[in-house]
Amino acid sequence: MVLIERIGKRAFETGRGFSYAMGFFFLILRESFFYIRQRKSRRVLTFQILFTAVEALPVIAILSLGLGAIIIIQGVALLPQFGQGQLVYTILITVITRELGPILTAFIIAARSGTAIATELGNMVVSHEIEAYMANGISPISYLVVPRFLGVTISLVLLNVYFNIFGLLGSYFVTALLATIDFRDYFTNLLNALTVVDVMVSLLKSAVSGAIISTVATYYGFKVEQASTEVPVMAIKSVGQGFILLITANAFLTVMYYLWL
């Protein structure tokens, strides 16, 4: 009986937590709409993009360069043996642009900026800053969450574009050090293999990932109640929960892509 009671209690808590998270997400969406419409101060947003996107660029660049170079080198060495040399471009597009690019970028940002946002907001809760904002009539959602939500979402989209630039073009120059590949042939074949749908799906995945990371990070940041020891716990939870949601959302979008196209 105790076990059943516990399961029931857990289910209720999960359901309540889910509905609270959904309400939190829709509140962020609504406040974001007002934020864009009322042209509020862009300074917090600019700093969020600076911290999330610009400072993460070196990591993203190295990762995408390495990944792209490995695909090109392996593809150029192996695929022509089966008479499928042209497939290297399709594989590059599939891996860099459509599948791994968005999710790897999201993982890096979730681990890097997601934890930072959750920790920062958690510490603000512990030091009663949030209460001070509310006491002064400032909504913590519109002032603290929305710039981070928009900043992370925009950063993810921008970083995905850079991931593609480094992964598709930069990796060519890395490979050119080891093998002779004509740049014009490479670029033309790449553009032939790339479609608008690939680009749109990639950007959509990044935008969804950005929304997930920022919502989860702010949600767990505000979940801190009193003690500073709760802050790292919530930061870890935000990363774990964020990863699960990121994989699920990416898998869902990939399935939708293959079902509809």
């Binding site: 600019t46 996107a53 660029l57 921008l158 574009v161 553009l191 608008v196």
Partner: peptide, 19 residues
């Protein structure tokens, strides 16, 4: 941030136009 956004936007437009 302005330069960062501008380079990404121009690159995206260039790729789409080249495609």
């Amino acid at each position: 941030v302005g330069i960062f956004v501008l380079v990404a936007a121009v690159s995206l437009v260039l790729v789409v136009v080249s495609m």
